[in-house]
Design a protein around this nucleic acid. Structure first.
Length: 160
DNA sequence: GCCAACGTTGGC
DNA sequence: GCCAACGTTGGC
């Protein structure tokens, strides 16, 4: 018997580089989440994130930063080919076909929030105190989100 | 632009 | 394997 436990994640991106609008305008709203060059994040992309998982799409390095939309993982981790493109900005000369080093998933657009659910707002929400995003010095670009945190955030979104 | 936090690199 | 130096992230 296969038990599929749906999991939840937060994926960070700088909207100047790739925003929720970019994702929405892709064919079928599907894009590869590539270019991640951090081992902790890589491990989650490769091993933990699965098709069907829910994703909070987070805009970082903007004022204010915040959750911009919701998307869903539609493909499990697979080698990130941008690591092997010498012309690309995510090139890593160590990556080979046998040892790709870096991994990505594919995500599909679900919804764009009517407005950003901002970081300062999230900090004030009871129940989110332990959310990884809100911890000091937290800068992982791929973060697990607990089911209760996901639920609270879905409720906030409905009231936006 | 500043700077705290954290990751990576490389000499030893 | 330690750790100092350096690079990057990202909120402010």
């Amino acid at each position: 018997m296969i038990i599929v436990a749906r999991k939840y994640w937060l994926l960070k991106t700088e909207p100047g580089c790739f925003s929720i609008d970019h994702l929405a305008s892709e064919p079928n709203g599907i894009a590869g989440w590539d270019g991640v060059r951090n081992y902790q994040a890589r491990n989650m992309l490769r091993d933990d994130i699965q098709a069907g998982d829910g994703v909070l799409f987070y805009h970082s390095s903007v004022q204010p930063a915040g959750i911009a939309g919701i998307c869903e993982v539609v493909r499990d981790g697979y080698p990130d080919e941008t690591a092997r493109d010498p012309e690309g900005e995510h090139f890593d000369p160590r990556a080979t076909a046998e040892n790709p080093i870096w991994y990505q998933v594919d995500v599909q657009f679900k919804s764009k929030l009517p407005r950003l659910l901002t970081l300062p707002e999230l900090r004030d929400v009871p129940g989110l105190e332990n959310m990884m995003l809100l911890q000091r010095g937290s800068r992982l670009s791929v973060q697990p989100v607990r089911p209760d945190e996901w639920k609270i955030i879905q409720r906030l979104i409905r009231k936006l």
